[in-house]
Design a protein around this nucleic acid. Structure first.
Length: 482
DNA sequence: TGAAATGTTGGGGCG
DNA sequence: ACGCCCCAACATTTC
């Protein structure tokens, strides 16, 4: 039998993988391949932190395939050219892949499908990454949804597929493996030692994803409603990078949460489960919006924001990026990002509000920084998150919603553990002052070893003044002009 | 998936 | 005992 190529992209798992399962059903040889195609990603080639994750996830996938008698073929270059050459070399009958939703990938994949078919190959594409693909969801008028609650309510009326079962056991190999690249030849790891903190936190790959998900199901799900907001706690699932790379899929998540209801019949089984599935819903909504509004990664969805006068302040941007704003909770969050490639969701909202409102720097700068530094960088989620924060998305934060970093710190890091962990120069400050060191008495600062402006910066903007300026600037574009 | 300003209420100190 | 004032505490409105 002729081999089938399974083209892996953001579906780096063997379980619940429809493209792989379909290939295995044919019974013939399967050739799993990953192609590093930076040019094919358009403006959004994977950033530094993502590349670190990708390196280790590809290694894990290769290991998993080897344990089943197969292997992962690694290539680099133009996807169509590489697939065409590979198909010719091994005399493949078909190419199967799971779909993506980024505008550049959608256009490229469509072109590839046409060309491969024209070359006599069978092409099969599948859904591995979403509960509800963008094209499947429309409102009564036939348009895409623009408000989350309406979107998600509608989705609840649609059937949700179960995870795909595939034959266990060996994956049939071709009689001869074609040549590929060593993992190191993809040059995905950073040259400087920036990623040292990543290893301690993350375990990329399908097994790591499963383990983390199991841990959250047992320990975090039912307390998620309250626990998810406490930045010093391990109250979130931290599945985002695993989900982005498809090491686990939302169908598996949905099925496992649903299974917890089999005893009681009550679904969702707890308030925490309900809130968690809602977050899965936001991920679906983000992909829905990206699929239907492909310009949003660079253009505001609300067109009046195109005339917003964002400031240009390289120094302020750099202070934000490096965690030197003088607002402890902002700085803690930005340093957590730099050191671990991840940031707590509550902290993401705080730092985004700070960049966009307090500093009035464009959300696109924030999105670009997150893109390069997050291991979970995902075009759909990143775009929605930043447009939501900036208020230029449709179902976004209203212009007057401005987070007060001091109050947010007090509410969601009440004892200051989050700040102390990531901003060690403030570690000796008591909780009363840890979110506002500039108000602490001089002798207290001295005894804590802090000299404001030296060991830790003074606030780079005054909160009250920045708030007033933001209100004026955002009101100008947010309210209809007479 | 805010925060601040403004308005209202009610308990307690005090003449 | 009574009315007045102060001011938390809470509610509502505004940005």
């Amino acid at each position: 039998m002729s081999p089938i190529i399974v083209w892996f992209r953001q579906d780096l798992r063997l379980a619940d993988n429809p493209a792989l399962a379909a290939a295995l059903e044919r019974g013939g040889p399967v050739v799993p391949v990953y192609i590093l195609d930076d040019a094919g990603e358009g403006e959004w080639r994977a950033g530094g932190a993502s590349r670190w994750w990708l390196h280790h996830s590809l290694a894990a996938l290769d290991d998993a395939l080897k344990s089943r008698g197969s292997r992962l073929l690694r290539l680099r270059g133009d996807s169509l050219a590489e697939l065409g050459r590979l198909a010719g070399t091994i005399q493949a009958a078909a190419v199967f892949w799971n779909r993506r939703y980024e505008p550049a990938a959608v256009a490229r994949d469509a072109r590839i499908a046409v060309r491969l078919k024209a070359g006599g190959l069978e092409v099969g594409t599948f859904n591995s990454g979403l509960l509800f693909e963008p094209e499947r969801v429309r409102n009564k008028a036939g348009d895409p949804f623009q408000v989350f609650t309406a979107f998600w309510r509608h989705c609840q009326t649609l059937p949700i597929e179960s995870p795909v079962r595939a034959a266990a056991g060996p994956i049939p190999a071709p009689s001869r493996w074609p040549a590929g690249l060593e993992l190191g030849q993809l040059a995905l790891l950073p040259e400087i030692g920036w990623d040292q903190g990543f290893r301690a936190v993350w375990n990329p790959g399908e097994a790591g994803a499963r383990k983390r998900w199991r841990h959250f199901l047992e320990n975090g799900l039912d307390g998620y409603a309250a626990g998810r907001d406490l930045m010093a706690e391990d109250g979130t699932s931290a599945l985002s990078p695993h989900l982005h790379f498809g090491e686990i899929g939302p169908r598996q998540i949905w099925a496992d949460v649903r299974a917890r209801s089999t005893d009681t019949g009550v679904f969702p089984s707890s308030r925490g489960a309900q809130v968690y599935l809602n977050e899965i819903g936001w991920r679906e909504f983000a992909h829905h919006l990206l699929g239907h509004f492909p310009r949003t990664p660079t253009e505001p969805l609300r067109e009046q924001f195109t005339r917003f006068a964002w400031r240009e302040e390289a120094g302020a941007l750099r202070a934000w990026q490096r965690g030197r704003t003088g607002y402890p909770v902002v700085d803690a969050a930005m340093r957590q990002l730099w050191q671990t490639g991840w940031m707590h969701n509550r902290a993401r909202m705080i730092v985004a509000s700070f960049l966009v409102k307090h500093l009035r720097l464009t959300w696109r700068e924030g999105a670009a920084w997150f893109w390069d530094t997050l291991v979970d960088a995902d075009l759909a989620n990143n775009t929605l998150g930043w447009q939501w924060s900036a208020g230029c998305g449709t179902d976004a934060a209203p212009y007057f919603r401005i987070f007060n970093p001091t109050l947010q710190g007090g509410k969601f890091d009440p004892d200051g553990r989050y700040v102390r962990r990531w901003v060690p120069e403030l570690a000796k400050l008591p909780a009363r002052f840890v979110h506002e060191p500039w108000t602490a008495p001089g002798e207290l600062l001295a005894s804590a070893g802090i000299e404001l402006g030296e060991t830790y910066p003074r606030p780079i903007v005054d909160h009250a003044a920045a708030r007033a300026a933001a209100l004026a600037a955002f009101k100008a574009v947010s309210t209809p002009r007479p």
